[in-house]
Write a protein that binds this DNA or RNA. Structure first.
Length: 579
RNA sequence: GCCGGCAUGGCUCAGUGGUAGAGCAAGUCAUUGGUAAUGACUAGAUCGUGAGUUCGAUUCUCACUGUCGGCUCCA
């Protein structure tokens, strides 16, 4: 109910925006202006382009206009009347066509002097209900979201009942900015991007540690769950992609390499075709199934330039990808094993996730009865798992139903990461078969599954989730040793060696700075433990005959004096447990 | 790709139609300091690339490249 009210407020604010724009630029053509998840927008066709600097002006006009918006009234009009009214506005005319075709009534909603073709859903007393609003940004958007249509100017805004709520929302936006992984990645030296290879990451030494730790964890899980790793070619002749169907459906999104006249290669955008080749490379028996092949090859996709976005959308990435070849009756068991794997692999990050179950789309391959069987198998496992999931009707892949993982980060944003897809199609394209126990040949079914999805993207999400302050097992530097003066250099060196020998990722800060500056720097680098070493520690160590160190955490907690061997023990446990 | 913004030393940013400035980072020296910045000095930029306008362009115009916000939300 609350939500509905908020939607009404926001939709009313969209009307208000349209009214204000018309008062300033009367020749502007109006199109549509719905409420959306966190606010509203209105798409305009301006005669002259406007800019961000115009937003405050529009806001002022909105405030002025709102003053005499006491209520919304509406009336129904005839088709002729509506057409006459919008005779110069092709967008509204198109809408009228559709409404008439659907046999619905044409209604006009009016507040103050402003009347707009609209289905309804407004607040009853706009000038009381719209307590606070703000225009946020300007963007281009195609009429009806279709690239072939005119590009309109979209103005985004948001509205709330109270100023406090608006402030909170704006604060959340600030918080998201503060967590920007592109910014943090640069600050703590994880990765850079360079214009010579747009959309591809240069992983720096510290970023590689992070990457490899995550990768090592997935490999541990592979072992545990009966996966075998393979490595497959990066460049494949176009014939491979013709067989898989990618050449006809996916070529525009692929990098291709043309060698001479007759040889054309595609740079692999996904591992599936190679997995099919491996399956086919020898005679398979039902005894071999399930055959679980993990492949973490580098993938390249020629994403449209405008969609690139830090680590979130890159043109080069790896997935924790695997293909599982199974018999029909394994679907349910295998899927529940995958679900268990997901649970275990998301546990260390302290984040919740939910699942989106995509079912048969309008255009699908294969037999409807196979789909029905597969869907019900997946759904019953989903139900048993007790995990939160929702059905996205018709959003499965054309080759099979799928389940996507949507994970929620520390500030409640939701990210699509992993995906599990059942595939009836590739086995057909590649004519895969195995010998069944009864001596007949059968076709396997394939699960494509990636639990973190793109490792780059997942790491991007983790950077924002942790604001760069990774748990010890992931932290590129786990301990920073900060000597107070060079009187204790030898002692610091000795402690440093012991950390190193224990396998801890440790750095020794020998720079000529005050202890305050060293602490500040290590803290900004988000090093979990700072080991401060001065004359006190040294003499205390000499007194008791063991190394005594003093530890402070990156969030300012002073753990006081500790015995080095004990601290090594506790940090080792922390790393093992991934806490 | 399309719409709009942005592009100045490694980073963050200021600035001007007459060939540039700060802070941080870096280097040198002094300082030997106890839990978030010790001080001084030095070096470092043909102002993203190309073209145009101009006596003269980092500044104005155009194109290109890169990057950021959008391009799913349906009167």
């Amino acid at each position: 109910m609350e939500n509905e009210k908020l939607n009404h407020i926001r939709h009313s604010a969209a009307h208000l925006l349209a009214a204000a724009v018309l008062r300033i630029w009367p020749d502007t053509k109006l199109t549509i202006g719905p409420a959306i998840e966190n606010g509203f927008y209105y798409d305009f066709d301006f005669t002259d382009p406007i800019s961000d600097d115009d937003l405050p002006k529009i806001e002022k006009m909105m405030a002025k206009t709102l003053a005499d918006w006491n209520e919304f009234t509406h009336r129904e009009v005839s088709e002729q009347e509506a057409r006459e009214m919008y005779k110069d506005n092709p967008y509204k005319l198109e809408l009228i066509d559709e409404i008439v075709q659907k046999g619905e009534a044409l209604t006009l909603y009016k507040a103050g002097y402003f009347e707009d073709l609209c289905r309804g859903g407004h607040s009853e007393e706009p000038n009381k209900d719209i307590g606070a609003f703000k225009l946020l940004s300007l963007a281009g958007a195609y009429w009806r979201g279709d690239e072939k249509n005119t590009m309109l100017t979209r103005i985004y805004g948001t509205a709330f009942v109270t100023q406090t709520e608006l402030d909170e929302y704006l604060h959340m936006l600030e918080e998201a900015k503060r967590r920007d992984h592109k910014k943090i990645g640069k600050e703590i030296d994880l990765f850079i991007m360079h214009e010579t290879s747009p959309g591809m990451t240069y992983w720096l030494p510290k970023g590689v540690i992070l990457y490899n730790e995550l990768y090592a964890f997935t490999r541990e899980m592979y072992k545990k769950y009966g996966y075998q790793e393979v490595m497959t070619p990066q460049l494949n002749k176009k014939e491979l992609y013709e067989t898989s169907g990618h050449w006809s459906h996916y070529k525009d999104d692929m990098f291709v390499a043309n060698m001479g006249e007759n040889e054309e290669f595609g740079i692999k955008p996904m591992n599936c075709p190679n997995a099919m080749v491996i399956f086919k490379s020898k005679t398979r028996s039902y005894n071999d199934l399930p055959l679980r092949l993990a492949d973490t090859s580098l993938l390249h996709r020629y994403e449209r330039s405008g969609t690139l976005n830090g680590l979130f959308r890159t043109r080069q990435f790896r997935q924790d990808d695997a293909h599982v070849f199974i018999m029909d009756d394994h679907i349910s068991d295998e899927f529940s094993q995958i679900m268990q794997m997901i649970e275990e692999m998301y546990a260390p990050f302290n984040l919740s996730y939910r699942l989106r179950f995509g079912t048969r789309p309008a255009k699908f391959m294969g037999e409807q009865k196979d789909w029905d069987r597969a869907e019900s198998a997946l759904e019953s496992v989903l139900q048993q798992s007790g995990k939160e999931y929702f059905k996205a009707q018709g959003e499965g892949a054309f080759y099979g139903p799928k389940v996507d993982i949507l994970m929620k980060d520390a500030i409640g944003r939701e990210w699509q990461t992993g995906t599990i897809q059942l595939d009836f199609q590739q086995p057909k394209n590649f004519e895969l078969k195995y010998s069944h126990s009864d001596g007949t040949e059968k076709m396997p079914v394939v699960f494509h599954r990636a639990i973190y999805g793109s490792l780059e993207r997942f790491l991007g999400v983790l950077i924002e989730h942790y604001v760069g302050a990774f748990p010890v097992w992931l932290a590129p530097v786990q301990v920073a040793i900060l000597p107070i003066s060079d009187k204790v250099t030898d002692f610091a060196q000795k402690v440093y060696e012991q950390f190193k020998d224990s396998g801890t990722r440790v750095e020794l800060d020998m720079s000529n700075q005050t202890i305050g500056a060293k602490i500040r720097e290590a803290t900004l680098q988000k090093v979990p433990y700072l080991c401060i070493i001065g004359e006190k520690e040294e003499s205390e160590s000499n007194r008791v005959g063991k190394e005594i160190i003093s530890i402070r955490t990156r969030d300012g907690r002073d753990l006081g004096n500790l015995e080095l061997s004990e601290f090594l023990e506790s940090i080792k446990k922390e790393i093992e447990k991934k806490t």
